[in-house]
Amino acid sequence: MPGTRIAALGHYQPSRVLTNADLAWIRQRTGIATRRIADEDESVTDMAAAAAAKALAASGLAPAEIGLVTVATCTAIDRCPSIAAQVAARLGIPAAVCFDLNNGCAGFTTALACADHSLKAGAARHALVIGAEKMSDVTDWSDRSTCVLLGDGAGAALISATETDHEGIGPVVWGSDPTRGDAVRLQHAWQPKFAQEGQTVFRWATTELPAIAENACHRAGIATTDLAAVVTHQANLRIIEALTRRLDLRDDVVIARDVVDSGNTSAASVPIALSKLVERGEAPSGAPMLLFTFGGGLSWAGQVVTCP
């Protein structure tokens, strides 16, 4: 069985910046200073394709070499064709299997694991894994507890099978607690609005998830002290800092805090933060990094990956 690795990354964010001044809100409570908001005519597909195009270009591969395209999203309006199929059409990818995946904020690492498993089984040699969200479409602007959190954008990873069993993408640790699934909601068919029980999510994320994150490192055969970087779901800064404090990390570990500038972009948050971290050279190539997402469901998924 071959191994897999992240070969290239890319991200896209809308040009419009919404600051706290525009919302008359305070940064102290959420740690968020700005977020990006898409134009009315800018779609989930537009953002997903832009991020994927950057990852594809950075990989040096031809579109015809991509055998799988998957988009993690919970805000797509189109049901069929899938966002993934539309991205493939725009990028000139001729014959890949294409599908969308909805696991809320845990979507990207869930999709990454599915693509990883497919490549290891020999179903494809190269795959595009994209997280893309237009959260502004589902924001309840009258709810001051949630409207300050959300932003739009997309991130993409191109992953490739390797000739050896080298674990560039480690084993996934994933699951859910459906008994608390209503703690994060995006319901009602025609005009869904994002809603959550903030304190429930905060307690769950900061008390129960650290042990699961540690298990992802254990399954990859490393200690948390071996990590060079940690990229969690960018829910809000208070959750990120409280969760990572519970892990036994080195003082020099890089902790992604892209939420400060981008807000909570749901399934897009980890690939955007990861792409920026690698673009800035904040983690050395070949170093182990923990990707860990959590959210609606209540679901979680995480794995250790090697920095490209």
Rank of each mutant, 00 (worst) to 15 (best):
R16A: 14
G155Q: 05
A273I: 03
H126S: 14
R90T: 12
W25V: 11
W141K: 08
H188K: 10
F99Q: 07
W174E: 02
G221F: 06
H166F: 12
R203C: 08
A189Y: 08
M47I: 07
H117C: 09
T179V: 12
R238F: 10
I26M: 09
V230L: 09
C114W: 02
A76F: 01
G286V: 10
R219W: 03
V230Q: 05
N20M: 06
D143V: 04
A154W: 02
V260A: 14
M289A: 14
S142T: 13
A88N: 10
A157V: 13
W204S: 10
N103T: 02
A154F: 07
Q234A: 11
R185E: 13
G302K: 01
W141I: 06
F292E: 01
G263Y: 06
I272Q: 05
R245Y: 09
C80H: 09
E208S: 14
V173H: 07
L291I: 06
L247G: 03
P308G: 07
A49R: 03
N102G: 04
F292N: 00
A7E: 12
L119E: 04
S43P: 03
L274A: 11
I169V: 14
P271G: 10
Q191M: 07
G151E: 06
A235Q: 02
A157L: 15
E241P: 00
D137S: 15
V172H: 01
T207R: 14
T224A: 10
V71P: 01
F194A: 09
V148K: 06
A267S: 15
D22R: 00
G175S: 11
V270I: 15
L249P: 03
F294P: 01
V278M: 14
R36E: 07
L209C: 09
A256T: 00
G60S: 11
A301F: 01
V305F: 07
T73L: 04
T225Q: 14
C147A: 10
A57K: 11
T206R: 02
I159M: 11
A85H: 08
P210Y: 08
G302H: 03
L209A: 06
A205L: 07
F194N: 04
D226H: 10
T200V: 14
F292L: 08
A220L: 07
A256D: 07
A84Y: 01
A95H: 14
D152G: 10
H166I: 11
A84H: 02
A132W: 03
D182C: 09
T244L: 07
I130K: 04
L291D: 05
L237D: 13
D137C: 09
V305G: 05
V304L: 10
R35N: 10
R36Y: 09
S160R: 05
Q13L: 15
C105F: 00
I37D: 02
L119K: 04
C98Q: 04
I130D: 09
A113P: 00
A51W: 02
A235V: 06
G221A: 12
A57M: 06
R36F: 05
A256P: 02
C74H: 04
A8F: 03
A161G: 13
M135Q: 09
W204N: 08
F294A: 02
V184C: 14
G297E: 01
